[in-house]
């Protein structure tokens, strides 16, 4: 297996508040990795550090052997990393189609860009319907689809998605994951997905990383991890508390 992404001992802090501490992580080419953990665990900060949106105070990040640390976000995006951020960050004043095209400035394969626009509008018919409407008028679920489509338009090799299921109806989440997995297959994408629900991650399948307090506290096959959580819930009647989590380590 070829290593796609290497995170070596990174730390992220906001002023004095540590968000990620001495975290290391390897992701292989074509792999699907879920990051789970409670609120404030540092999941978004980890993605931010990889994408270059958030500065690291320590450590080094590599993609395909290129050093990402210290690069501008646009330079990292141009190396083939794309991001669907928490909260979607749709350009509300732009049309749906314009949103899709913002990230295509780096691409020289003009015909493939047009084909991709078509493919994404096919994958999400609701976007095709609203193609020329202001994106700000889309519903939350539609915006999530647009954010995913927009990230795909850069033709990434590694795509990071921060909580795609947040605020969406379960049916829509199914659809979003179906599309993500299909596209991953088709484009040999590597996916790093923040997903709160271990059940969902287990159902989609892949490796799962559990974060807490800025560190990785557990790692394994998503299905096994979900089983462990279900077991813990059966025994303790509630999502695992802090001490259980450490015990599980």
């Amino acid at each position: 297996m070829m290593s796609k992404l290497g995170v070596f001992d990174i730390s992220v802090r906001y002023g004095k508040i540590p968000a990620v501490t001495d975290l290391s992580l390897q992701i292989n080419e074509g792999e699907r990795v879920f990051v789970s953990g409670p609120n404030g665990a540092g999941k978004s900060s980890l993605l931010g550090a990889i994408s270059g949106a958030v500065a690291t105070s320590h450590g080094r990040i590599e993609m395909d052997g290129d050093l990402l640390t210290g690069r501008q976000p646009e330079a990292i995006a141009r190396l083939g990393l794309s991001m669907v951020p928490e909260g979607r960050e749709i350009f509300g004043a732009l049309t749906v189609e314009e949103n899709l095209r913002v990230g295509t400035g780096m691409r020289r394969d003009v015909q493939a860009v047009e084909a991709d626009v078509g493919e994404i509008l096919d994958a999400f018919p609701i976007l095709a319907e609203r193609r020329h409407a202001a994106a700000g008028a889309l519903s939350g679920g539609q915006q999530q689809m647009l954010a995913i489509g927009r990230a795909l338009m850069t033709n990434p090799k590694l795509m990071m998605v921060d909580e795609p299921s947040l605020g969406l109806a379960p049916k829509i989440v199914d659809q979003v994951y179906e599309t993500l997995c299909a596209l991953q297959e088709e484009r040999s994408l590597t996916l790093l997905i923040v997903e709160q629900s271990s059940l969902r991650a287990a159902r989609v399948g892949g490796r799962m990383i559990l974060m807490r307090g800025g560190r990785i506290v557990g790692e394994g096959n998503a299905a096994d991890m979900a089983d462990r959580e279900a077991l813990a819930q059966a025994y303790f009647g509630a999502p695992r508390s802090n001490s259980d989590m450490e015990a599980a380590e």
Binding site: Q72, A77, S82, P85, E89, V102, G103, M106
Partner: peptide, 13 residues
């Protein structure tokens, strides 16, 4: 509208 997001999509500041 959102400079950081634009840069994450490869738009050069």
């Amino acid at each position: 509208e959102n400079f950081t997001m634009a840069r994450l999509l490869g738009v050069r500041a």
